[in-house]
């Protein structure tokens, strides 16, 4: 279904559209997603929950239906108000693998994504990288530096993750606003390039 924005009643003063834009911060369990969102958000990260219905193994014969349990999965998000009409939201994906089914709900219509990588648990970043590549969501990879972890060079991390050479990659410390800012700016640059390419392609 499409929403029409331009059918305002005649006489209504023209106003800029209200635009929420969504960014996703993904990565494995404990990779620093909440920390990253908190470093950039103007409000302390908010927590919201989505319900998940799991069909139990036990079948309730009396009611002729399968026993269902409803649990919730939490996600954190932050907000960055650009101006009265433009608001950026940063959503952290739930870290646990079993919430993979929620990714479409979180990621549909995302402008871009950041994949946080903990080099001690590289394998935990595979699902995010695969997901954004498959869905054509522009993304950047940020390698979080945790104390006491082995330093890997970015080229080695890129190879290990199987990230294509056109995907920007950087190091960061999610605890510091300045560092998190650079990651988001890298992603925004990438979006500018993509928008320019699209504009060039539509000019015949």
């Amino acid at each position: 279904m499409t929403i029409k924005h331009d059918d305002r009643p005649a006489g209504d003063a023209w106003k800029p559209r209200i635009r929420p834009v969504k960014f996703v911060v993904a990565g494995g369990f404990g990779a620093g997603k909440t920390t990253f969102v908190g470093a950039l958000s103007e409000i302390p990260p908010l927590r919201t929950e989505a319900a998940m219905t799991t069909v139990g193994a036990r079948v309730d014969h009396r009611r002729g239906s399968e026993a269902k349990t409803t649990t919730t999965v939490a996600m954190d998000f932050g907000r960055l108000t650009v101006d009265e009409y433009l608001v950026m939201y940063l959503f952290g994906t739930p870290g646990q693998e079993r919430f993979g089914f929620m990714w479409d709900d979180i990621c549909t219509h995302a402008l871009g994504a950041v994949v946080l990588v903990d080099t001690d648990r590289l394998d935990q970043s595979f699902p995010a990288v695969d997901y954004f590549e498959a869905k054509d969501v522009p993304f950047v990879v940020a390698v979080n530096r945790f104390e006491g972890t082995t330093r890997h060079d970015l080229g080695a991390v890129r190879d290990a993750l199987g990230v294509s050479s056109h995907v920007p990659m950087t190091e960061c410390d999610a605890r510091h606003t300045e560092s998190a800012k650079q990651v988001l700016l890298l992603l925004l640059d990438e979006l500018v390039n993509a928008a320019r390419a699209r504009a060039a392609a539509t000019v015949v």
Partner: peptide, 16 residues
């Protein structure tokens, strides 16, 4: 998403 909207976001993030 238009380029000017992206520029406004970039300015806001830089100003953090």
């Amino acid at each position: 998403i238009e380029l000017d909207v992206l520029s406004r976001m970039i300015d806001a993030v830089r100003a953090l």
